[in-house]
């Protein structure tokens, strides 16, 4: 009995020594990793602690730790305000349009490009299609705003030249979702297609040969070989989209909107920005509460989407 204990203790000690020895041997790796740990603690995990102000009445003098607790009051205030339904409607509406139009657009573009045999033509179109991805949000929004301008915008010039009436695009809320979606499709179609193009190139050519031997025409090849070949990629991209259902590219909206457009353009992030940062009397706690609500729902959505996709297909993020 006594010997058995000492044997296992000796074993543990030897294993411990071995681990320590290995860590010392690889000390450079651990040393390199130290600044990384510091970075993630300071800039990524410390703000997660800062989230507690969502449950406080934060004021600058008492700081994060010293401000008084108020429980769920900030959340209650937000859910009861008129903004909650407005922000939810706009965020979901804009994202739904994005899923209906912005999501399939790169897939269709990739499929259409895939049919082209002429390498030069294919590559030129692809290169042109990436271009908008490299243009900054400020410039893209700047172009949209100036193109849609009432008196000098090219879009209104075209409408007038075709015999129509000039349109107040940027003060009429009804147009906003359409404008925003169009802008994002323009910016993202070519770039978004890259991974589908790669997936298409990765399909085993013998599958097509087998399909041809079985008498499948082009259309049947597309349905039975091409689409199954990229379905994993499509599902993965879809999960990512679902996880961001409560997020909208707020940077472009902040640049584009004006008070007249708030009813259609205001989303969670833009409101957080206005309440917490762009206000002369910022309410940090309320803004943080809205942000926390948004991130938690986002987290839940990603987990659910991932679980569903694991269940019904091979694709999963983790």
């Amino acid at each position: 009995m006594k010997t058995a204990v000492s044997v296992s203790a000796g074993l543990r000690e030897r294993r411990w020594k071995k681990t320590m020895h290995e860590i010392w041997r690889d000390r450079v790796l651990y040393f390199l990793f130290l600044p990384v740990i510091a970075y993630y603690i300071v800039f990524r995990y410390a703000p997660m602690y800062g989230v507690v102000i969502a449950f406080k009445n934060f004021n600058v003098y008492d700081g994060i730790a010293g401000s008084p607790w108020v429980g769920w009051a900030n959340f209650a205030q937000f859910f009861k305000s008129v903004y909650f339904t407005r922000l939810l409607k706009n965020t979901l509406g804009i994202n739904l349009l994005d899923i209906l139009i912005g999501f399939p657009a790169p897939i269709i573009f990739a499929l259409m490009l895939n049919e082209i045999r002429n390498v030069m033509f294919k590559r030129s179109i692809q290169t042109i299609s990436y271009l908008p991805h490299f243009i900054s949000t400020v410039v893209v929004v700047g172009m949209v705003v100036n193109f849609l301008s009432l008196s000098t915008g090219i879009v209104n010039n075209i409408i007038e030249a075709c015999g129509g009436q000039r349109v107040y695009f940027l003060t009429e809320p009804n147009y906003f979702w359409g404008i925003y979606t169009t802008m994002n499709v323009w910016k993202g179609i070519g770039w978004g297609a890259i991974i589908y193009i790669a997936a298409l190139a990765g399909i085993d050519p013998t599958l097509y040969e087998a399909a041809i031997i079985d008498g499948a025409g082009r259309w049947k090849q597309t349905i039975h070989v091409t689409l199954p070949g990229i379905s994993t990629t499509i599902v993965t991209m879809f999960i990512l989209k679902i996880g961001h259902l409560l997020e909208v590219g707020y940077e472009s909206i902040i640049l584009m909107y004006n008070p007249k457009l708030y009813p259609a353009a205001d989303v969670f992030s833009t409101y957080i920005y206005r309440v917490g940062l762009a206000s002369s009397d910022p309410n940090y706690s309320l803004a943080t509460a809205i942000g926390l609500f948004q991130s938690l729902i986002g987290l839940v959505l990603v987990v659910i989407a991932n679980r569903l996709s694991k269940k019904y297909s091979e694709a999963a993020l983790w």
Binding site: R44, M48, G50, V51, I272, Y273, L277, G291, L296, L299
Partner: peptide, 10 residues
């Protein structure tokens, strides 16, 4: 999951 705009700013 991240702290969000305001905690990062603070």
């Amino acid at each position: 999951f991240n702290g969000g705009m305001i905690p990062s700013y603070l």
